[in-house]
Design a protein around this nucleic acid. Structure first.
Lengths: 142, 142
DNA sequence: TCAATAGTTTAGAATTATTATAATGTAGAT
DNA sequence: ATCTACATTATAATAATTCTAAACTATTGA
């Protein structure tokens, strides 16, 4: 519970009103050892388990998007019909386990600096991200 | 029209019956200079323009997925609520223009070999793909 | 302290992308 | 020509997400 004050402060810092739903979401998302990868569905389940009062689905969507806009969360594109989010908002890469549909972080230091020789005129690079798809060793490839 | 025979042959080769819908889709997808990136929606529009008879939405989905399974098309994950497909099925990377939502191919030769130092025990790497997000030079970053 | 107000939450409806269903049609083999 | 397995079709169903409009609440400042 001592951590809640931090969340309230942090929410204020980025200009988000610290409502109880938002603070609760912060607890669920950031009171963890490791970074957390999730879909909206995962999060809704977790929240309904860990909360006494109900939180609306629309609020979960709103809040996740508010967090994303303010740099609290990062969206990861892997599967084209589900959004994955990541509490690690720094530039980094991912492994995607095609058996379990799990995302695993991969530090920038785990992959050599990526040198891109092609240029798009008039455009600047916003981000460079690598997705490494893995699967069980003894299985037919996708 | 001379190309249709090729499409019929190619469809047969991978074990797909060359129905008129499939041949028409081949024409629209592969009678091009460059590789083609599209969403189902793009394709439906193109088909309804270029066809005299109607093609069902379900058929477009079925056929795209049949083509994907047989290696005629490749799915690209960028945006988490739309599927993009690519007629270039070889291993390659992409630029994604965040202004126009356009995909641009990037040959493997345009990016130095990617060396991954991290390992997931019991898992083998299926693919390594880079997505480079670009945007207009004089614009606030996403 | 309390009212005003601007931003938030909510339930449910609406929308969008995609998949399933079941009847009809058609390609390829006999 | 006929049969059979596979394809196509319209439509319904589902899933993920967004919209809407009313009720609620955190903050401001009188």
């Amino acid at each position: 519970m001592s951590k809640n004050c931090n969340f309230i402060e942090k929410l204020r810092e980025v200009g988000l009103r610290p409502t109880k739903q938002r603070v609760k979401m912060c607890e669920v998302l950031y009171n963890r050892e490791k970074t957390f990868h999730f879909t909206i569905n995962d999060l809704v389940k977790l929240l309904s388990e860990k909360m006494n009062q109900k939180i609306s689905l629309a609020t979960v969507y709103n809040t996740v998007h508010a967090f994303e806009k303010k740099g609290y969360l990062k969206e990861i594109s892997i599967d084209s019909h589900k959004s994955y989010f990541d509490t690690n908002t720094s530039a980094h890469h991912h492994f995607f386990d095609e058996d379990t549909h799990e995302l695993i972080d991969c530090d920038e230091s785990d992959i050599d600096k990526i040198n891109i020789r092609k240029n798009i005129t008039g455009k600047k690079i916003n981000s460079v991200e690598v997705l490494v798809r893995v699967a069980s060793d003894n299985q037919t490839q996708k």
